[in-house]
Nucleic acid binder design. Structure first.
Lengths: 213, 213
DNA sequence: ACCCATTGGAGAGCGGCGCTATCCATGATT
DNA sequence: AATCATGGATAGCGCCGCTCTCCAATGGGT
């Protein structure tokens, strides 16, 4: 299929697809002649994934390129590509924007991971740093973030990870990598939305005023 | 305290504080003379909260204004202010950027909420719409999002909400509203970071290569 | 074979956002 | 009185995600 058809079938504006091609989010089409190129079904799949990462997952375009590049990196075995791809995802909290982390937050994070039985924390893992940054922010505002309150979050995260990995295991080869990226990123809004809905429910049941609400 | 001191104690650049004042994120200082104003401790608290929302929680400045305005809205009782404040938070998925929601995703979301026992879903609730948008994206990519897999997410969200509300209940008056906003927003990165760490752990234990890793 | 609309490609431009730098009149400080 | 900092307003910057414009090559209809 040609660019115009790829655009129609995906719903992504043609100029945007050109931009994604330029940025390396999509592999170039198969050159048919000096001025034409053909695109296949897997371009369509890739485009959908890229679009979802960017628009739903809020992944920056440059980051999406790195993630997708890792998925395709034939020089690595599957498990390494998986690690590279997900660690290329943008950090939950961008380091350069948050305040420098506090040592007490670092220690608290370490205690939490220990209590969860998650030994061997890589202290430079972007997710670990994001965790510490978030705890730093909570502490600096004077809000509680004792290990006791964080523990449920960790245990639940652990359950979800197991469930997610079971889901991923149903895919094979490169599609498993794509699934890992997609499920990691796209279940985040699911989780946050559900948490907010649950908050609203809980607040409503606790503090609802008697008058018609 | 004057602007310069507020800047020093908060670590926020002076020009940025001016900008926040202009945008209405902070109430104006108490005017001492035609060219001077004083700021109190609660300005410092507010500034910290605003900064954390913006930098850690990625809340847009204009949205943070609405949220903080709701916290201060003396014309409403506390429970109403709470509802207004959290519903002013930016949606997890921005409507205008994602594809229009699919009806099957809508139905799936409804089934999920029913299965969770969360009756009376407000179908125009921003969090509900975000949930449906995320499910739409997963479906359109061909990834599974059966109620069976979503259910654990919902149940865990419910547990977290209870735990969060217990924490909030320790605060009184306006500080409870601030706590609600702060805990809603700032525990999101905590949760996402822990999930990603758990993913990495789980993937590692399942797919680790024997050679030194 | 001829002609013209279409294609893929490249660069510049745009609009939104979160600041940041500049300027200015006033009044505090010494 | 002289100087300098302050608060306030305006304009500009840098990044990002597109979007617009242009262009040579070409394939398709006749």
């Amino acid at each position: 299929m040609r660019l115009a058809e790829l655009s129609e079938r995906s719903g992504v504006p043609l100029a945007t697809i050109k931009y994604y091609l330029r940025e390396g989010l999509l592999p170039p089409g198969e050159r048919i002649s000096a001025t034409q190129a053909r695109y296949g079904e897997e371009h369509l799949r890739r485009l959908g994934l890229a679009r979802a990462l960017i628009q739903v997952g809020r992944v920056p375009v440059a980051t999406a390129r790195e993630v997708l590049r890792a998925v395709d990196d034939e020089s690595l075995d599957l498990s390494r590509r998986l690690g590279t791809a997900v660690s290329s995802l943008p950090p939950v909290v961008r380091e350069e924007k948050a305040e420098p982390v506090s040592t007490s937050a670092q220690q608290r994070a370490r205690e939490l991971l220990t209590a969860l039985g998650w030994e061997d924390p890589h202290p430079n893992d972007p997710s670990h740093l994001s965790l510490v940054s978030a705890i730093t922010a909570l502490e600096s505002l004077g809000y509680p973030c004792e290990v006791a309150h964080l523990l449920p979050y960790g245990r639940l995260a652990s359950e979800l990870a197991t469930s997610d990995m079971d889901l991923m295991a149903e895919f094979e080869g490169t599609t498993r990598l794509e699934a890992a990226v997609a499920l990691t990123v796209l279940y985040e809004p699911v989780l946050l939305s559900l948490r907010r809905l649950a908050h609203a429910r809980e607040a409503d049941s606790r503090y609802r005023e008697p008058e018609g609400g």
